[in-house]
Structures are given as C-alpha cells and as structure tokens.
Design a protein around this nucleic acid. Structure first.
Lengths: 144, 144
DNA sequence: TTCTGGTTCCCCACTTTTCGCCACTTACTA
DNA sequence: TAGTAAGTGGCGAAAAGTGGGGAACCAGAA
C-alpha cells in the first residue's frame, strides 16, 4: 500500500528515483500513465494488468470510447527500474505533467502519483482551503 | 501487450522502423490494414488471425458493418520486417493514413497504430480536453 | 535475346540515444 | 560520530534509429 509524500528530482537524463520503501512492491517493473489533473499515475504491473484488460476489451464502436482507450493505452508505458531504483520518464509523459526538475511523489493507496512540485503545492493549498467540503465528503463516506 | 507512444520516421524508401521492444512479439511478420480515424493498424500474425475470423463471421446485413469489414479485410497486407526491424509501407496505405515523414506509433493493447505525427497530436489534444468525461470513464472502470 | 529504367531487398555504416555500472554526497541511525 | 542506506550524477558500452550503396529482380522496348 502506497502512502506518504516524497520529494525527488529528475536528472538531466530524465531519470527519477522512486521512494526506496516501495521498490519491493514493484519488483523492478512499473507502468506509468496519464493521470487526472495533470499528474502521472504509477502502478505496479499487477494493478495495471487489471486496468489494461478492461481497456482492451472496451467496444471500439463509439467514437468517444475509442479516443478514451487510445489516450489511456497509448499514454501508458511500462518501465524497468535501474539498479538504483530509478525510472526514465518518456518525453510525452514528462510534457503532459509539465514535470521539471523537482517532483513530488505521492502515495495513493494502490498507486503513486507524480506531480511537478509547484503544481502539487498549488493543488494542495487549494484543496486545504476546501476543508468544509472535504469534511462533508468524509461524513458521507462514514468516516469521522 | 502493446502500450506507449513512439516517434519514428519514414525514410525515402518508405521504410518505417517499429519500436524495438515489440519486435519479439512480431516474429518477423506483421499484418497492416486500414484502421479507424485515418490511421493504420498493425497486428502480429497471431492476433490478425483472430480478427479476420471475427470479421469474416460478422453479419453482412447492415450497411455500415459491411463497409467496416471491407475496410479492414480488403486493405490488409502482410509484411516482413527487415534485419533492422523495419517494414515498407505500401503507397495505398501510406496515402490512406496521409503519412509523411514523421510518424507516431501508438501501442493499443493487441495492436499498434500508425499515425501521421501532426494528426496524432491534433487527435490527442482534442481527446484530452474533456477531462470530466475521462474522469467519468475512469470511475466506470473502477479506477479512482 | 539484350538493353535500359525502375523497384525491391539486403547489407553495411554512421549517429544518437539508452542502459548498466560506478562513485560521490547527503541524510538518517545507532 | 561512525556506519549504513538513499538519492543523485556521470562515464563508457551497447543498442536503436536512420541513411545509403549496390546487387538482384522485373518489366517493357529495341
């Protein structure tokens, strides 16, 4: 289970180290995909297979479904960790999430999220302002 | 399983290199056919056989089904990879997808798609716009 | 048949990118 | 404060992508 917030940096070769405490769960392989709100999702292979299976079997008849599947599958990439636990972020994903040097890695239960540090801080302060709404949601979920 | 987005180029002899990480799955042979939305589909021989089977058994009653089957089956061609992992794109397919020099190769689960780079970028930015719909679709897949 | 022009295919070569490894530095722990 | 682990940086080797020469092949024309 992925939890916590970590700061890492992308070097000149587009390499990004993943937090060492999670490397065991990845077993040397991860899948990175386009996420929501301009971040990237990082899944262990086992999680990704479930998702890909569903995507691959979606009907291609409808135009909007087709483009959704294209975006998700073509937007994903499977990567190997090097001996230091780093992955190389492809250009098209790096651009999508507007990643520069400083990256925030966030643990979200069954995945990691990669954020440009600045974007993350902004997003977070926005979300923190919305405390009342969050409290409301928690209540609805039965969390007190 | 094919995923990811790759940039390659067609040279003056109409040769196009396929991403090296997939060459193993092709075993030297591929089937290329007209795809949906002005792109080309590239299947490994094993996948193509399944597809062709399905297409051959489709009911020919509906007009749109008929034209879809014609599109896929009539345009299909099997190609060999050369020793550098390239295929030669026939003119009629190159024209159909309006391929110029810069080509985007997209992995879509059981096939690759070949797009003119410009067309791909346009298609993608169109699909990316509707983040709400994407979130909705993700929710339907059980991804949160 | 023989010549010629065009096309295809095979192989070699150059350039760029990627990958694996090693090493330094920083942070945390005991 | 020594020791260990994590994060970062850089080098050299290997692989991938691209371009081009030239042989083989196939047509049509003389």
């Amino acid at each position: 289970m992925f939890i916590g917030e970590y700061k890492h940096s992308i070097d000149s070769k587009k390499r990004l180290a993943l937090p060492s405490k999670f490397r065991g769960e990845f077993k040397g392989k991860v899948v990175v995909t386009r996420g929501l709100d301009q971040c990237l999702f990082v899944y262990p292979m086992s999680e990704w297979k479930k998702i890909a299976e569903k995507l691959g079997n979606m009907p291609v008849g409808e135009k909007s479904t087709r483009s959704f599947v294209r975006l998700m599958l073509a937007g994903a990439i499977d990567l190997d960790l090097d001996s230091q636990g780093r992955i190389v972020i492809p250009d098209y994903l790096k651009n999508y999430a507007k990643l520069k040097k400083a990256v925030t890695v966030a643990g979200l239960f069954n995945r990691l999220e990669l954020w440009d540090e600045g974007a993350w801080d902004k997003y977070k302060s926005g979300a923190e302002k919305d405390q009342d709404k969050i409290a409301e949601q928690l209540g609805r979920l039965g969390i007190y």
